[in-house]
């Protein structure tokens, strides 16, 4: 099946943002992810699907080195962002994470005001020189996250006081405030109700215009709705990767077919 995904990729290798080759992840003695080769394209939504524990979140967290925070985690192989190895000794994960933003499964706004939540990233990265510039970035990010109209009158209210869907959009606004090039989303809608989910999905589609978005999801419908490309993970390896339409209508691997038709998972 690997041959299949490789040919698939060769077709679209025009605008590769992230190039992963032979990625291995070990948690202590367990081999969580083996030999993953994926190319993430620029200005595209890429969905990772697969049953629980298949390694899709682990792989996502490799892309901005969030796995570094786990002591027993070891990452092997190569991950290139714009041709630069992000696991190179010279790379500071802090700089990397400014370029590769992340939105987590559970909305996790800082227990600060809405304004401070969004302004925090630009502040620590020194992206602004004046207060008005900062305010501009905050407004811009909140607009992009489709939250501006709901919160513009209460930017000083605590971010934790918003509803779940609003909190998640606030987290998205916070992530895009540092103008990352890639946005990683780890099941961003799993804690949201259908209406908030629809809002976030719509937002993801709009974000595609500026960012390369990678989304991990348990919902195949969601993957089908928002993504252009889909990767299916199973038991720690990448089974199939290709155009979303092709994966869902004409999967080449029998395991992919079993999963999307609900026979394994």
């Amino acid at each position: 099946m690997n041959d299949m995904t490789l040919t698939e990729r060769a077709v679209q290798a025009s605008d590769i943002k992230i190039e992963a080759r032979g990625v291995q992840v070990h948690y202590g003695a367990s081999h969580a992810l083996r030999d993953v080769d994926v190319d993430i394209l620029g200005k595209t939504v890429t969905a990772f699907i697969g049953p629980s524990g298949c390694g899709k979140s682990t792989f996502l967290r490799c892309l901005n080195r969030m796995n570094d925070t786990i002591d027993i985690c070891r990452v092997g192989g190569k991950i290139l962002l714009d041709g630069e190895d992000i696991y190179d000794r010279k790379v500071d994960p802090v700089q990397l994470r400014a370029k590769v933003g992340m939105v987590f499964q559970k909305p996790n706004p800082f227990p600060k005001s809405i304004f401070d939540n969004v302004a925090y990233g630009p502040k620590i990265h020194g992206l602004t020189r004046s207060r008005s510039e900062l305010e501009g970035i905050v407004e811009d990010s909140l607009r992009k996250a489709a939250l501006w109209n709901e919160v513009k009158d209460r930017l000083d209210a605590p971010g934790t006081g918003l509803s779940g869907g609003q909190q998640q959009r606030l987290c998205i606004a916070r992530a895009i405030a540092t103008s990352p090039e890639v946005l990683l989303m780890d099941e961003p809608c799993s804690a949201l109700d259908p209406i908030a989910t629809a809002q976030v999905e719509e937002l993801i589609d709009e974000l595609r215009a500026n960012f390369s978005v990678v989304i991990v999801t348990h919902s195949m419908q969601q993957a089908a709705r928002v993504s252009q490309r889909t990767a299916f993970f199973h038991l720690g390896s990448l089974v199939e990767y290709g155009e979303t339409g092709q994966i869902f209508t004409n999967p080449s691997d029998p395991r992919t077919e079993s999963y999307i038709t609900g026979r394994i998972g």
Binding site: V94, G121, I124, A177
Partner: peptide, 9 residues
């Protein structure tokens, strides 16, 4: 995670 995720040291 949130702080590290947006690039705080």
């Amino acid at each position: 995670d949130a702080a590290l995720g947006i690039g705080a040291s």
